[in-house]
Design a protein around this nucleic acid. Structure first.
Lengths: 212, 212
DNA sequence: ATTACTAATCATCGAGTAG
DNA sequence: TCTACTCGATGATTAGTAA
């Protein structure tokens, strides 16, 4: 149903579609289509405006995210896992990485889903604009999800992690859902990369990114 | 289930997966997973070899075609409809187009699904190798299907049609499932293109192909 | 351990119909 | 017309268990 609505354009503009039409295209009855819509509405995947007997439908961002996830899965089958290289130079952050990676809410998730306890701090890498553009494709990859949570009266956002070999060392690129910077990216690893790789600000680094 | 198997690599090599594992990953019981497999096997989408209690699974070509169709649908949502231009020069076929397009089995399907009664004959266009390569992407598009059938003791293969503007005229590129040539493509239209466009062998033509 | 049958349960569907 | 309710039938799922 979501796929059908997306094809009809409900991803970018409200679309008028009767439940009878939807039912026909889905091969189910009008009643079933109506129920599906109610269900999707309840799950906040579809927003409906009922103007005198005609419903206008449009898809919410979570619905598009869901469809994009499916798209990613199918693309992985036919195009294979994504792979790219990105290079930049080491830079200093504002100590935010250390702060976030000391939050238990993040630590348990990183440990469970990445398979290692993260060193409490991130390595910041500044990208040149051309490199930043190459990073855009990573958005369409299937990464390891880290969910947002609330703690101590504030909310911590979610992120997606992508396996990386940073100068040959196992690490993960972290992409926060709400990213502030575009030219600085952060890596997390089981060890302090700066020490292990003898890096200082301005040193060039190269990361091999792999999907999954 | 098919998607899951494809991800596990069952598209190119047999994979050992218990029904318990499959059930877990699908969020259903072991019994249900077993039933799904039996069903898929009956529909010839999965081939199973049961070696002493361990089943090895692999996906059949029809299953991959089914998944590819899904992939196409999702890609259309996020990448938009495909569009390309292809050029070549008019050539003479062997009169096969006329023969095929006089088969009622094809005529009714073309008429219903393309929206016009096809002129009984195709326009053949010879491509240079560089152009032929650009045609490869069309394989991943969603086209109009024309199914194969049997008539008069022989079988006629299926094909996929793609909307084209050939020198501005509405027509369809025909891609037979079992294509013999790679450098010659065929177009069908409601009228005799050769006459309407005043074409003779060797004349250059340009086709704007659009998905859907 | 497996796969898969049977029986009971449960969810889903469409017909009829109300608003 | 439209959406969406109730309800009986149909279908699917799981638990228990056999092979």
């Amino acid at each position: 149903m979501l796929q059908l609505l997306a094809h009809a354009g409900a991803d970018h503009t409200p679309v008028v579609l009767t439940s009878r039409e939807l039912g026909e295209r889905l091969g189910v009855s009008q009643q079933a289509a109506s129920r599906y819509l109610l269900d999707l509405e309840r799950r906040e995947l579809v927003v409906r405006t009922l103007a005198n007997r005609r419903q206008r439908l449009h898809l919410t961002p979570p619905a598009m995210e869901l469809l994009r996830g499916e798209y990613r899965d199918y693309r992985r089958i036919f195009e294979g896992p994504g792979r790219t290289t990105i290079s930049g130079e080491v830079t200093s952050g504002l100590g935010e990485g250390r702060y976030y990676l000391s939050q238990p809410g993040y630590v348990v998730q990183f440990t469970e889903r990445l398979g290692y306890a993260p060193f409490p701090g991130t390595l910041n890498v500044r990208l040149r604009p051309s490199e930043a553009r190459r990073l855009a494709v990573v958005r369409d990859w299937n990464g390891v999800r880290v969910d947002g949570f609330e703690a101590g009266g504030r909310t911590f956002g979610g992120a997606t992690c992508y396996l990386a070999l940073l100068n040959g060392r196992r690490s993960h690129l972290i992409r926060p859902d709400r990213s502030h910077y575009q030219d600085v990216i952060e890596f997390v690893a089981p060890e302090r990369l700066r020490t292990r790789l003898h890096l200082k600000d301005g040193d060039p680094v190269k990361a091999n990114l792999e999907e999954r």
